[in-house]
Design a binder for these strands. Structure first.
Lengths: 228, 228
DNA sequence: GCTGATAATTAGGCATACCTAAATTACAGT
DNA sequence: ACTGTAATTTAGGTATGCCTAATTATCAGC
């Protein structure tokens, strides 16, 4: 069990979420390493007696039950740590990801249990992502990308990607965070900007596609209450 | 800057404390690796443009100013983490070392600062070891090994080694911890056991040499008050 | 000053996890 | 079915940090 292996499993888990199998190229891009390096590691992860992934040449990778459980364990570490850094140590939400990324590999079961208890077994991290349970399962909920929301509809922000601190600071400045209501007023043509009302503010903001792709929402009725 | 390098620097720092230079063999023993591996690393650490250590063949290693500063930085991480795990997360004092050993390499400056602040800039870790300051200095105090205490004298426990959890649990059970007073009643011949009174208890305990070697004290007057 | 024990070093290897460059496979469009 | 492009894999190489086995240096005792 090395850090590299954990990083691969976590990445494959995330890539499986959208699209059944994780391709060599997508893993390489996500981990910022060369595709050739990924091929080698995928072979290794699938060759063990108890493999972490299922892998066939040119077919991409898919986690085995064991691999999925391990991935969720690391993701649990990561999200609990983000919550801990934010709530207990006063980190801002754009600062927690990088620190959690390093610590997730270093903490013990004991540490995990202690902060989970101290935080009251939280359900979500500061960006709204669901925290996997200790038994290796993760709650499900219906959510969609903000980009898929039809014009005129309202929605509640469920979570935002934590990978880019700049985007998080920008979203903060707009008041966009988990639990806040949005209304999609208009959508520019040719992947143009989204015109959005945030919360109960009348003002309409124009957000680029790239930023909106990082926001997950759940549709709500016209009056702004959640419908799920 | 790798974990391995940090571990070497920390080890050399500790070995320099008792005996000017750290020998290849002592470093190997401390890190539980082969002496041949140490030679290679010592070369590397001394060859850089800005070397971490001074090293001449067969002469052992000595930290440079830069190396000492780095070592103290890691030791500060370690001891702050031990204090944090103990005070904030409810770890017992025999549990903190191993966890801190892993975390010390993973935490950022930010994390270090936050827990130091939250703990009120502590001076000592749970075993009584002094915590290096952020500027790379460490307070000094006169202390001696319990084994060097003359028979009949009293002393205050300053610190105990944190490396062996078993010993820590044993000391706990005897009530021996930093700040507690001891009186050396008698010393068995041929490295025999030490007969000790702990605190204000009349009872005399017999402690083996191995355990006593892990205890640092400062002499106090007959009535039990510190003389330093 | 020699000698033998001990300590340290050199030499040669191994595993991990990455790289680049070259070869191959898959697949979409004609 | 063919062909070109893009994705993937293979081949060969690098750095880190450890290993064992063999060699060499140091130093204390005679």
């Amino acid at each position: 069990m090395t850090e590299a292996i954990d990083d691969y499993l976590k990445t494959i888990y995330e890539l499986e979420e959208d699209g059944g199998r994780a391709s060599t190229a997508s893993i390489a891009k996500h981990l910022e390493i060369a595709p050739a390096s990924v091929t080698g590691m995928l072979k290794k992860l699938s060759e063990k007696d108890q493999p972490w992934i299922a892998y066939e040449k040119h077919q991409g990778a898919k986690l085995t039950g064991r691999g999925r459980k391990r991935a969720l364990e690391i993701i649990r570490h990561h999200r609990l740590l983000e919550k801990f850094l934010h709530d207990s140590l006063g980190y801002r939400w754009d600062e927690v990801h990088d620190e959690a990324e390093k610590l997730e590999h270093a903490i013990s079961e004991r540490f995990e249990d202690r902060i989970a208890e101290q935080l009251g077994d939280p359900i979500e991290d500061p960006h709204g992502h669901l925290i996997p349970r200790k038994d290796g399962t993760i709650p499900e909920r219906s959510q969609q990308g903000l980009l898929e929301l039809p014009v005129g509809y309202s929605a509640l922000v469920l979570c935002v990607s934590d990978r880019d601190p700049e985007i998080l600071r920008y979203l903060s400045s707009l008041g966009i965070r988990p639990g806040v209501g949005l209304r999609l007023v208009e959508k520019g043509p040719f992947d143009g900007p989204l015109m959005l009302q945030v919360g109960s503010d009348e003002k309409v903001h124009a957000l680029g596609v790239k930023v909106c792709a990082e926001i997950q929402v759940t549709m709500s009725t016209k009056d702004g209450s959640a419908d799920d």
